[in-house]
Amino acid sequence: MASEQHPLWAEIQQGEGKALERQRLLQSYDEQIAWETELNSLDLAPLQQAFAQRGKPLDLARMKSLKLIREEQGKDHPTHGLMILLGLYEQVEIKCSRFKGTSMAVFLDKKEYQGDLFSQLAQTEAFIKNHLHLKAEILGLQRTESYEIPIPAIREALINAVVHRDYSNAGRDIKVGIYDDVLNIVSPGGLPHGLTLNEVLKGRSEIRNKVIARVFKELGYIEQWGSGMSRIHELCQEADNPAPAFSESGDFIDIEFHRTEVVESGVMGGSVGGAIGGEVVVQSELTERQQAVLQLIIENPRKSHREIAEALNINASAVQKHLDKLKEAGAIERIGGTRGYWKVKV
């Protein structure tokens, strides 16, 4: 008796069949006409605005050359590429989550972004920034702040996911997960045309979405073909961050950034800000132990290292470590020497 085929496997086979047919026609999915949509029913403003911001016109001729529009039997039609860029398909979505700890068991924050691809990228970047730590560094007399993972590397990874993911199947989207230890970006669609991950990391490129890739290159989101993953690696290296991990699992591509400011168990939420001229100069999260040290100083700004150590039953070197963290965060400042006191700035 013949076994019944699993519906998911049937869907995968159907998708593979369509992909082979597009390959035979030398067309990508996004170059094909979206027959069910009338061109004059579309609001092109988001795309026109994106081009205008780069000082580039977007007239009918340009849209045709980019294959956003194709003419068939004397009539202009939108392509899937135009529909995707405008965010008009259900699968054109980025789901962002901040999880508690290192598993997906508990959500701390969750957002789902639809709309045109450009606004999705901007909203996703803002979500990520909101859940990463800032680290401060003193360069000469200037205090500089940067995110624990370089934002240009994250931006490159998001663009890479948006440009190269598989849009041909509904019900699949890009997922961004932020954990205590990693930032994870997963996009649907394995590597195209038998390309291996090792080849991609060496700079070889096969473009799955030709229309979207052309538009993103035209707008300056892509510098050169095949540079995305190596660029991500270089940006992390320049920031002295751990190398990101790239992997292909099933029909998904996964990029994992390691967080350099790993959240310790029992983190206290909330912002700690020191003010200069009314401006918040740093944002951070403190552990329970650092909160306890801060509370002791608030109660008695002249408390010595030894007194803090005795009160918390920890050694002097641990006290110094926590004080350094509080100073770095802009929460306290030492006024005077051994006979001085702590100025609390929060």
Rank of each mutant, 00 (worst) to 15 (best):
V346T: 15
Q32P: 00
A161C: 15
L68Y: 07
S247R: 14
E218C: 11
K64A: 04
G228W: 06
Q142W: 00
R172Y: 05
S168V: 00
A2N: 08
Y113V: 05
L47H: 13
L117G: 02
T260C: 07
G269F: 09
L141Y: 09
Q283F: 06
K110H: 15
K56H: 01
L191Y: 03
R155V: 12
G189H: 03
Q32H: 00
H77A: 04
S317N: 06
G17S: 13
E307F: 06
E112N: 14
Q120T: 07
Q91F: 03
Q114W: 12
A311Y: 02
V92D: 12
L323K: 03
S97Y: 08
N198T: 13
F127G: 08
E11F: 05
N160H: 12
A309S: 10
G337A: 15
G274R: 09
P242Q: 06
T79I: 07
I128H: 02
Q142S: 11
F51P: 02
W342Y: 14
P7S: 09
R70G: 04
H193E: 15
S65T: 12
E238Y: 14
T260Q: 14
K217D: 06
E16S: 12
S187T: 10
S284E: 10
G87V: 08
E156A: 07
D251V: 00
D254Q: 14
A309I: 04
G140N: 11
E21F: 13
V182I: 14
A50C: 07
N198C: 00
S119C: 01
S265I: 09
N198K: 15
E238S: 13
I84W: 13
S249V: 12
M63P: 01
Q14T: 14
L88Q: 14
L39W: 06
L183Y: 04
E261I: 08
Q73D: 14
L68D: 03
D76V: 10
L139V: 15
L117T: 06
L25M: 12
L197V: 00
I222R: 01
S317G: 01
S247M: 12
A153H: 01
T124D: 01
A2S: 07
V176S: 05
G278K: 02
L86A: 03
V106F: 07
L132H: 05
S119Q: 07
V344N: 00
D173E: 13
V182E: 11
G337Q: 15
A61W: 04
L66K: 09
R22G: 04
I335H: 07
Q283K: 12
I332K: 11
E156V: 02
S119L: 08
D251R: 13
I12F: 14
K202G: 04
G269M: 05
E145K: 14
Q5P: 02
V200S: 13
T287K: 12
P152H: 08
V163Q: 07
E21P: 00
T144H: 12
L121Y: 03
L60V: 03
Q123A: 15
E261T: 09
V186C: 06
C96H: 07
R302K: 15
F118P: 02
E90T: 08
G140Y: 09
P150H: 06
